[in-house]
Amino acid sequence: MRFDTSPAPHVIAGYTVPRVMFQVLLALAPAGIAHVALFGPGLLLQLSVACVTALLAEAAALRWRGRDAAPALRDGSVLVTAFLLAFSIPPLLPWWLGALGTALAVLLGKHVFGGLGQNPFNPAMVGYAILLVAFPAEMTRWPVPMDVDGTRTWSELARMSFAGFCGADLAARWDGYTGATALDSIRNGLGLRYTLPELLARGDIAGTFGARGFAWINLAALAGGLYLVSRRIVRWHIPVAVLGGLLVPSFIAHGLDPGIALGPTLQAFSGATMLTAFFIATDPVSAATSDRGRLWYGAGIGLIAWIIRTWGGYPDGCAFAVLLMNLAVPFIDRYTVPRIYGRQP
């Protein structure tokens, strides 16, 4: 009898990239539900345009590069990019901006470097950063969330989301329904010499444990992130380090000056904190390699995000923090090679 003589090992666990990516998408579901419940269905519109654009851009890029598009489209990684971008942008964004950001994320963020596994930067954050720099007004206009007061209904939010998605002038009909995010409002308020307790007492910024609206999304993202950690899709190092890098300095600063420095709870449950810690910073392709390196990488993201939130020109610095630390990855990797068994440290 003749047999095939392939090399060992003969058994593998059968983990696949599509399965990993699918788990990530699944873990985003709670945050998505919270998002839709509080800010209206805009997220779903953004998701659909982002996914379609991402798949088209991926297929086009692979064609231009002379590769077979089918396996790459099935691996699901481009959908994760689309989801992360759609979660980051405001749900009122006109569809062409969402499409532009996604196309840039896939083409400039991923394929110019050689596609899956080769990109030094997180593609979704490349798209987000370009949009934020190029269209600052559109990129900072969010719906006022449902839980700020009871006067708005979800159906009104839905109609406004459609209007925004189609590019209607929102200021004309929906003034008062849109506004800055909580972090943005705090920044503006502090700029006008209000103190933090005064701003928080206003009621439209902070909820019971974080920023209005965003607190629930962050909580849901935290739940999804913990699911990923429990399934070992994501290892704990980066999320813990990101939160540590952000919360430890904010705890110290808040203790020193509670009048202007945001406390750790507010930091943790506003803006894109949890999304960054569990979903964006953990993109393995653009993150550091070793466990120790990932701690440095995550801590750097948290610290830079805190610095930008405290002194920078943008209300939430998570995207820039991720991109800056992406730049530092080769350096981190070089100095955090783990000790090999049997070798001197």
Partner: peptide
């Protein structure tokens, strides 16, 4: 597929 640097191997 290409390596996605997930680090599971390490």
């Amino acid at each position: 597929l290409p390596c996605i640097r997930c680090g599971d191997c390490a």
